[in-house]
Structures are given as structure tokens and as C-alpha cells.
Design a protein around this nucleic acid. Structure first.
Lengths: 216, 216
DNA sequence: CTTGACACAGAACAAATGTTCGTGTATACT
DNA sequence: AGTATACACGAACATTTGTTCTGTGTCAAG
């Protein structure tokens, strides 16, 4: 994902501050390092970095910046995998569209789940949602499971997507296959359950599922 | 070196703030955790902790406290969770007992999966197995899912266990409920599927499932 | 030429945050 | 009894810090 040179410098500054001072930098410290004279420009770029999924911000606290990809902060050790902090932005409920974050900030995210690159290879922004109810059983997803998703409004064949069915007013998690220009097959994960066929116009692709986590 | 209980609490607070929020606490945050109502008392105790060599303070910056002894922080760093490397010891196949490692070394394990304490709270040995085939569908577990287990040969009611059914020569993953001294109910996760009832003598508990990971 | 998006800037302000001051209590020592 | 030290407290204040506002400049597209 493309970053401007200033944005890359800001990320470097945050990383170095954590490593060298044991604390994230202030807005003004970032400005000094990145040669940005105005706190509003630092704030503007931090908001962009949050939208792009590189950082999380806590509002109205000092040094309220967290790196999402912590890999570069962990000292090299016996562990080769990188850490990823995934924001838990809401819930999947059958009768509602999936809450899709424009930014993590839009949801006032406080909860995150720490995973590793073994589980989340996706480098772009990802987010987590908790499943409520038994409606995702045909996706072999249990009440309480955590679904890790990435934003994607166009589906490719075989993608496991969160789809909002407009006519039925229902969210479903199924594999997407385009059968023809006006027919989409949504295939449940459970092979004993029949797929459903819908017109593409009835469908709103809300994201692609990349992992499911179940704690027993 | 003797610390007062409040001073010990202050150190714990600093450590936890670094681990959970990725930044040191403010004077007021320390006061909240250590039940000290006055910022000057926090300040006084921080100065003592610095004199005693437990912390370093940077004056007149926000969150200007550093732990001197990083031993309890470094493995985690500004990370929210410890990393856990889980050995991937084999596969769950319906027609075979689950391979239960005595130790990881016994299996000459080369594969591991890196997870975090957000996912694996269990402090004892855990191991991972990959599910092969559709036999665990009634547990809402898909072919290819990774099941995280711990060794446990006795089940408690409600535990999700891997059980080897001797007569049927089959492994199953179901919640265990002891109905009587000679009847065990094995309850699938999928609520639309009926449980099975077996005699305890027909059952070999091979481990308890603590998490399931699905990569899509 | 106009418009919109993006990046940048300074200033002002509100809130967060650290420091200092004056005071009180309890305990130990002389 | 007096003194010193440790620990505690609320309040006030100074400074740091984050957010918002208003404005400007550049560039690409129409």
C-alpha cells in the first residue's frame, strides 16, 4: 500500500520512539522528526495512517498512537512470526449488515486481538467481528466465533465473503461463485447444505473473510 | 530492597500499561490503579522508586517513566500479549485416534503455529492438529481447520474433547456430559444435530480442545 | 478557467499532564 | 517533649499535548 515519504517517516518515528524511549511520541515530537511544522498536518497524516490500517489512535490521551504491525518493534528472538493487532470492531448478526469500518476510529475501537502472521498474512487493514447467534452455522461458524475480515467490495470466485442479501435483509457468510452475468452461487462451507442462487443486484459484498478464531 | 505495597503496585501498574496499552501510564493513571488520590503522592513515590533504581524519569514530558528492569517487559515489549509457539503435531482423521504427543520432541516436530495469549490462555503444554476430511462438520470444524488442544484424559462436563470411540473406531470432537455412571452424552456443536450416547468404557478421552483456527 | 482532492500551515483553544506548595498523621529516636 | 523521617493529602499552577479552525498552495481532471 502506498505511503507518502512523510507518512513513512512518521511510522519510523513512532517505531524508534518505542524502541529508544519506551513510549510513543507526541504529535509535536513526530513533527520535529518528520520536519512538519504544524501539529494539524501531523494529526492529518496520523488519521490517514489509521485509515490505512498502520496505526490505531486513542483520542485525547497523550501519546495515544499504537502501531498495528508490531513486528518491527519486537526485538529479534526465537520467534520468527510477526504480531498483528486486529481491531475488534463489532458483531456479525444475521439480520443486520456487517459493520464495515471506514476507519477503526469510526468505531471507537478499544478492543483488539493480537494474532500473528501465521494466521493473518494479509498486509492491508484487517478487522475482527464477533459472531452472534447460530445463523452462520452453515458456514461452520459458531456463536461467539471471531471472524477476521478485510475490506473488499468485489468478490472473486471462491472467496469466502460476508454478503448482505437485500431482499431477505440478511447477512450470510458463503463462498462466492459467479455462475453468469445475472446469477451468483453462494456456497455454504458445510457440504451437506445446498447453495443458494441470487441475482447480483440482490447482493452487497461487505468484505472477505480471511480467518476464523474459536476459543472454546 | 524493600518496597512499600503502594510502590510495588506502582511498578506493576507501569509494567501492565506498557504491555496492554503500549505506553507508560500518566501520574493520574498510576494514582487510579494504586488507589492514591493525590498526584503529589504518586510523584513522591515515583521519585523514591527512581532513587532506589527501579525506574528512570524524564522530567516534564508526559508519561516520562521508564522501567529499569525490563526483564518482565522485554519478551512482551509494548505488546499486548505474549507469543506462544504451538507445535503442529499431526492430523485429526476420523478413522484414527488423535496423535497425542508425550512431548513435542517425540514427534520430531518441525511445524509450529505462532499464536498469542489472547488466543491461548492455557499455560501448560498445548499442541495443534490439522483436521482432515469432513468428519468434524458436526463440531462446526472444517477440513483444514487447526485445532488447539491440551492433554487431558479425564473430561469435565461441558468440555469440548477429542474422543476415540473404540467400537466405532472413530475420532469425534464433541462436548462431553456424564449422564450417569455408565452413560456419556457427546453433544455436537451444531445444535441441529442429535447427540450420541456411549458407554464410558467405549470412550477414550484424548484431549481437550481449547481453540480452533481457520484460515480461509 | 474552474473545481475538487490532497497536503500543508499558523493560531487558538481545551484538555491532559507534571510539578510545587502547604499541611496533616504516625512512628522512631533522642 | 521535641525532632526527624516517611507517607499521605488537596489544591493550585505551569506546561505539555491533542484537536479544531481557517486559510493557502499545488496538481490533476474536466
Amino acid at each position: 500500500m502506498n505511503l507518502s515519504p512523510k507518512q513513512q517517516k512518521i511510522l519510523d518515528c513512532i517505531r524508534e520512539s518505542l524502541q529508544q524511549k519506551g513510549r510513543p511520541p507526541t504529535i509535536r515530537e513526530i513533527g520535529e522528526v518528520a520536519k512538519i511544522s504544524s501539529t494539524s498536518v501531523v494529526n492529518y497524516n496520523l488519521n490517514i495512517l489509521q485509515e490505512k490500517g498502520f496505526i490505531l489512535r486513542d483520542r485525547e490521551v497523550s501519546r495515544g498512537v499504537k502501531l498495528v504491525d508490531l513486528a518491527s518493534v519486537v526485538p529479534e528472538g526465537p520467534l520468527s512470526s510477526e504480531l498483528v493487532r486486529v481491531p475488534l470492531v463489532g458483531r456479525i448478526v444475521a439480520g443486520l449488515p456487517v459493520p464495515i469500518p471506514e476507519t477503526a476510529a469510526a468505531f471507537n475501537v478499544e478492543d483488539t486481538i493480537a494474532l500473528t502472521r501465521d494466521i493473518v498474512e494479509e498486509r492491508g487493514p484487517v478487522y475482527a467481528l464477533e459472531v452472534k447467534g447460530d445463523s452462520m452455522i452453515d458456514a461452520l461458524i459458531h456463536d461467539g466465533d471471531i471472524v477476521i475480515m478485510k475490506r473488499q467490495s468485489e468478490a472473486n470466485n471462491g472467496d469466502l465473503v460476508a454478503a448482505w442479501l437485500k431482499a431477505e435483509k440478511e447477512t450470510t457468510l458463503k463462498r462466492f461463485y459467479r455462475e453468469s452475468s445475472d446469477l451468483v452461487r453462494l456456497q455454504p462451507a458445510n457440504p451437506t447444505i445446498q447453495p443458494i442462487y441470487v441475482h447480483p443486484a440482490n447482493l452487497d459484498i461487505q468484505g472477505k473473510v480471511i480467518a476464523v478464531i474459536r476459543q472454546v
